[in-house]
Simulated scan of single mutants.
Amino acid sequence: MSPAADLDPFAPTLTPGRARALPWATVMAGSLVTTVPVIATVPILPPCGLLMLLAWRLLARFALRPWAAAPLGLFDDLLSGQPLGSAVLLWSLCFLAIDLMERRLVFRDFWQDWLIASGTIVLCLAGGRVIALPVGAHVDGALLAQGVVTILLFPVSARLVAWIDRKRGLA
């Protein structure tokens, strides 16, 4: 079965308003993952809201406006327990860093997207540690494990975002 056979020109697509709201809803759903009660000896739950935000920004550039990182970061701050404004600042810095890299890189493939996402994930996790915890706190091992898990889960979130983007009818 070819990919062209999957294309049904008469299949109903989402309305434009719903198609524009879907990236916002998926990032907010990713942020809601932190409210799921998980019992763990080491806190390595990845920031799923950040993963979804980065996947939308890197795969579907115009799905989220450049200013979208601030309200989505505020939503994440309200749910995650981080100091208010930390995700607003860090997610906005990630959008700015990605925008600067896009000006330099004309063409990108998935490996470069993964490398860019890895850098911004490390920036966000390290920045969140500096903002939220005292300097003497011994959380570097857990932070390293969380960073590795988050970086390794980026392809999963990118695949999910690509599937959602194709289903929303704007790809």
Score class of each variant (00 low, 15 high):
Asp109Ser: 10
Asp109Thr: 09
Phe110Trp: 15
Trp111Asp: 08
Trp111Met: 10
Trp111Ala: 14
Trp111Lys: 10
Gln112Val: 11
Gln112Trp: 10
Gln112Asp: 10
Asp113Val: 02
Asp113Lys: 05
Asp113Glu: 07
Asp113Ala: 03
Asp113Ser: 04
Ile116Ala: 00
Ile116Asn: 00
Ala117Glu: 00
Ala117Val: 01
Ala117Met: 01
Ala117Pro: 01
Ala117Gly: 02
Ala117Leu: 01
Ser118Met: 08
Ser118Thr: 12
Ser118Lys: 06
Ser118Asn: 04
Gly119Lys: 00
Gly119Val: 03
Gly119Gln: 01
Gly119Pro: 02
Gly119Ser: 03
Thr120Glu: 06
Thr120Trp: 02
Thr120Cys: 13
Thr120Asp: 06
Ile121Leu: 05
Ile121Thr: 01
Val122Thr: 11
Leu123Gln: 06
Leu123Ser: 02
Leu123Arg: 03
Cys124Ser: 08
Cys124Lys: 02
Cys124His: 05
Cys124Glu: 03
Cys124Val: 09
Leu125Phe: 07
Leu125Tyr: 06
Leu125Lys: 03
Leu125Ile: 08
Ala126Gln: 06
Ala126Tyr: 04
Ala126Trp: 05
Gly127Arg: 00
Gly127His: 01
Gly127Gln: 00
Gly127Met: 01
Gly127Pro: 00
Gly128Asn: 06
Gly128Pro: 05
Gly128Tyr: 01
Arg129Asn: 10
Arg129Glu: 09
Arg129Gly: 13
Val130Arg: 09
Val130Cys: 08
Val130Ala: 10
Ile131Cys: 07
Ala132Pro: 03
Ala132Ile: 03
Ala132Asn: 07
Leu133Trp: 15
Leu133Phe: 15
Pro134Ala: 06
Pro134Asp: 07
Pro134Cys: 05
Val135Thr: 14
Gly136Glu: 14
Gly136His: 14
Gly136Gln: 15
Gly136Leu: 13
Gly136Ala: 15
Gly136Arg: 14
Gly136Met: 13
Gly136Pro: 08
Ala137Met: 11
His138Arg: 14
His138Trp: 13
Val139Cys: 09
Val139His: 10
Val139Asp: 12
Asp140Lys: 12
Asp140Gln: 15
Asp140Val: 13
Asp140Ile: 14
Gly141Trp: 12
Gly141Pro: 05
Gly141Asp: 09
Ala142Arg: 08
Ala142Asp: 10
Leu143Ile: 11
Leu143Phe: 13
Leu143Gln: 12
Leu144Ala: 10
Leu144Cys: 03
Leu144Gln: 03
Leu144Glu: 01
Ala145Cys: 12
Ala145Ser: 11
Ala145Tyr: 11
Gln146Ile: 08
Val148Ser: 05
Val148Gln: 03
